Simulated scan of single mutants.
Amino acid sequence: MKDNAIRLHSLADATAPIPTSRDGLGFADLASLMNASPSPVVLAGDYTGRIVSLIALQRLPGMLRTPITSIIAMLTRPIWRGKRFDGNTGTNLWISRRRPRTFGDFAITTAEDGHHAALDYNQHANPRPVPLITGEAAALGPGVFIAAMYLTVMRRRITLMYFTLDR
Rank of each mutant, 00 (worst) to 15 (best):
K2H: 11
K2W: 09
D3S: 02
H9Y: 05
H9G: 01
L11K: 10
A14S: 12
A14R: 06
T15D: 14
I18E: 10
P19L: 05
T20S: 15
D23N: 01
G24R: 03
G24F: 09
G24H: 10
L25P: 10
F27T: 12
A28R: 11
A28P: 05
D29Y: 11
A31E: 13
A31D: 13
S32Q: 15
M34Y: 07
M34C: 14
S37A: 15
S39K: 09
A44R: 11
A44W: 03
D46L: 05
S53H: 05
I55Y: 04
A56L: 12
Q58P: 08
R59I: 08
L60F: 06
P61E: 06
P61C: 09
G62T: 13
G62W: 01
G62M: 03
G62H: 07
T66H: 01
P67V: 11
I68N: 00
A73M: 07
R77G: 01
G82M: 05
R84H: 10
N88R: 13
T89Y: 07
T89M: 08
T91H: 06
T91F: 01
N92I: 03
R97T: 07
R98L: 09
R99D: 14
P100G: 08
F103T: 02
D105A: 05
A107R: 15
A107W: 09
A107L: 13
A111T: 07
A111N: 10
E112Q: 13
E112W: 03
E112A: 15
D113W: 07
D113G: 09
D120I: 04
Y121Q: 12
H124A: 14
A125Q: 13
A125V: 10
N126Y: 05
P127R: 14
P129T: 02
P131H: 04
G135Q: 05
E136D: 08
P142K: 14
G143N: 11
V144A: 14
M149N: 14
Y150G: 02
L151W: 06
M161P: 02
F163C: 00
